[in-house]
Design a protein around this nucleic acid. Structure first.
Length: 593
RNA sequence: GGGGGCGUAGUUCAGUUUGGUUAGAACGCCUGCCUGUCGAGCAGGAGGUCGCGAGUUCGAAUCUCGUCGCUCCCGCCA
């Protein structure tokens, strides 16, 4: 039998009760976390959003307690008692007290949950089950803490940016589709037959228009939508701390972000963060770590072994160098003890990133041994050992290929080694600014240049002269913030002058007419005194994941989707009624195979 | 679009390599006992479309093919 809440008001949070509350008359409301019966005497751990406390039922109420099941919702009136010394629970914040129950109202019953709400259950509950019953998953302490963490970080960011004079401004969710960048999520218009809105991949154009409008410092907790394949750190919708500033340099943007994170660390995590962060160019990080988002929590830096390899008898490598490629190598201290199988595992990592193979040799007292060592006799081998600073007992790993392939493949091996050798300390945060990215990438398929970031990124002043002659050489005022191997933010200084904008568009094959058609509204706005401006957008979900040491952003989003972009809870996406389709003049085509 | 892993009781898993009587464990659930537990304890009990579908076989959780779901990675993606 259920009771009504009546005129009872919740007086305390379960988790907040302390010894100082002794004697207080309280009314608690929450969920039955666990029940322990001892014949007449019974204990219930009552849980609400503040935590857990123990309530005691005397014999007179034992029949009512027996009705209760896990996750039933109850209201209890009783008195806070200090527990006898030997019965205090030091593992529980409220463990010094317990509630002697005088009256109970059962507010709702519950089915037995499909998985335990307690946090000590054996093993991890499957994520698909957690997502289907997300409202129960979110009940778990672990998830409540993550959502609290998210809230606190957002609050701190808002507070910090506001204090610097930033204004939070909302931009539309229904915008115009642009074919640049990621695939758009698209929304059909009912009023305009055959027309579509797009959901924003980011508020990019709007924040630039706000700069033209003279707002100077803008930010927004911006939901961003991208219809691309997902990963553990990529959801179809995610939240960015989107920022834009006028009259700024890269340095000033870095400074704002560093101080913002500094205050998040100080006021949310309670930790000092060392700023400013290190900076490296794209070329440097790729050369040293084989990744544009290196994990700096461990060393194992890459070296260039092209010269020595060219002189070696290893045809595969000397050929690569002859054709303009490079040979990258790294030294694994103590790695000579690796088994054949272990090395093959590492080779798999290299091959994933399209290396043809992973060459290796062991360093012994007398010289190089095993693997490809027979090709590296004499000075070539000596030179490699010297470059890598290798010692007896070490393992040398090498990849020869076109620069980017060699670097990324060996970078993948480096990451695998970091995990394998357990070099990554939990709770260590290594931030890094990566900047001076190339402005254009060469699209092999289309045989054309494309913008690496977006079309509005300003080239480095000193590279402007190569826009016409050698676009590959042009680097952008483009930057990423990286932490522990995760890309946390990305931004650029934008082009505010029409002449430079037209030149950049020309490189990627957009003529004036097409530019006008696609970006006319922005270019038009830029004709009315656009200030120099730039910005950045830290990914909130990723930031939370990295700061919390998690490994999936899904854990930091209340209602995430699966890798197939489905919600297992509401079962979306779903078909819509014929009637809805007709209103939109939309017909479903057969899937092309 | 491509490659890898996983799918067995409500949950987490073992069993699959090498096919063989009635598919097990722990936790949870149900019943009873129990007045100081807090991952309570003790005794008893219920609970299975081995993801789904075909095939091979005297016989399939186990082998083969297909398919679905979740996940990790490449491509893609800021």
């Amino acid at each position: 039998m259920l009771d009504h809440q009546g005129d009872w008001k919740k007086s305390h949070g379960c988790g907040n009760l302390r010894a100082s509350d002794e004697g207080a008359e309280v009314i608690l409301m929450g969920w039955v976390h666990r029940r322990r019966e001892h014949g007449g005497l019974a204990f219930v751990d009552l849980r609400d959003s503040s935590g857990i406390c123990q309530v005691v039922f005397q014999e007179a109420m034992s029949d009512r307690v027996r009705e209760l099941g896990a996750e039933w919702v109850v209201a209890l009136r009783g008195k806070v008692n200090l527990r006898p010394k030997e019965m205090r629970n030091a593992d529980m914040p409220s463990g010094d007290v317990e509630i002697r129950v005088e009256e109970m109202r059962i507010l709702n019953e519950s089915l037995t949950p499909p998985f335990p709400i307690e946090s000590f259950h054996q093993g991890e509950v499957g994520e698909d089950l957690r997502l289907k019953y997300r409202y129960l998953d979110l009940r778990r302490r672990e998830m409540q803490d993550r959502m609290t963490f998210r809230h606190k970080v957002v609050l701190e960011v808002r507070d910090f940016l506001s204090s610097l004079g930033f204004r939070e401004i909302e931009t539309p969710m229904f915008i115009r589709s642009t074919p640049e960048g990621a695939r758009d999520y698209v929304v059909p218009s009912r009023i305009h037959h055959g027309m579509f809105y797009a959901l924003p991949q980011s508020p990019q154009l709007y924040k630039q228009l706000l700069m033209v409008a003279g707002y100077e410092k803008y930010f927004q907790m911006a939901r961003c939508f991208r219809d691309e394949d997902l990963r553990g750190d990529r959801q179809p919708e995610h939240t960015q701390i989107d920022m834009e500033m006028s009259f700024v340099t890269e340095d000033e943007i870095f400074d704002v972000v560093e101080r913002m994170l500094e205050s998040v660390f100080k006021n949310v995590i309670g930790q000092e963060l060392k700023v400013p962060f290190d900076r490296m160019s794209y070329q440097e990080v790729m050369d040293l770590y084989g990744s544009d988002k290196p994990d700096l929590r461990f060393g194992l830096e890459l070296s260039d072994l092209s010269e020595a390899s060219a002189q070696s008898e290893f045809k595969a490598f000397s050929g690569v160098v002859e054709n303009g490629g490079v040979v990258k190598g790294l030294c694994v201290p103590g790695g000579a003890s690796f088994s054949r199988k272990e090395i093959e595992e590492l080779e798999k990592s290299a091959k994933t990133y399209h290396a043809k193979g992973l060459a290796w040799m062991k360093v012994e007292e007398g010289g190089l041994a095993s693997g490809v060592s027979k090709f590296f006799g004499g000075s070539a081998g000596d030179s490699i050992v010297k470059t890598l600073g290798a010692n007896a007992g070490d393992l040398i790993l090498m990849v020869g290929d076109e620069w980017e392939t060699a670097a990324t493949a060996l970078g993948a091996v480096r990451n695998a080694l970091g995990r394998k050798l357990d070099l990554i300390k939990a709770g260590d945060f290594r931030f890094l600014w990566v900047h001076k990215f190339p402005l254009f990438g060469w699209d092999e398929e289309k045989q054309a240049f494309e913008a690496m970031h977006h079309l509005f990124t300003l080239p480095l002043d000193e590279d402007l002269e190569y826009l016409d002659s050698d676009p590959r050489r042009v680097r952008g005022q483009l930057y990423d913030l990286v932490c522990n191997g995760v890309e946390l933010a990305s931004g650029s200084i934008r082009i505010h002058r029409r002449d430079i904008q037209e030149k950049v568009m020309a490189v990627v094959g957009i003529d004036k007419a097409e530019a006008e058609r696609r970006f006319g509204f922005l270019l038009g706005a830029f004709d009315y005194g656009a200030p120099p401006h730039g910005g950045i957008a830290p990914g909130l979900d990723r930031l939370l994941m990295v700061l919390d040491g998690g490994d999936s952003i899904r854990d930091y989003i209340a209602f995430p989707k699966t890798l197939q972009a489905k919600s297992l809870m509401v079962d979306s996406p779903a078909p819509i009624d014929e009637e809805q389709l007709r209103e939109l003049s939309i017909e479903i085509r057969k899937k092309e195979s």
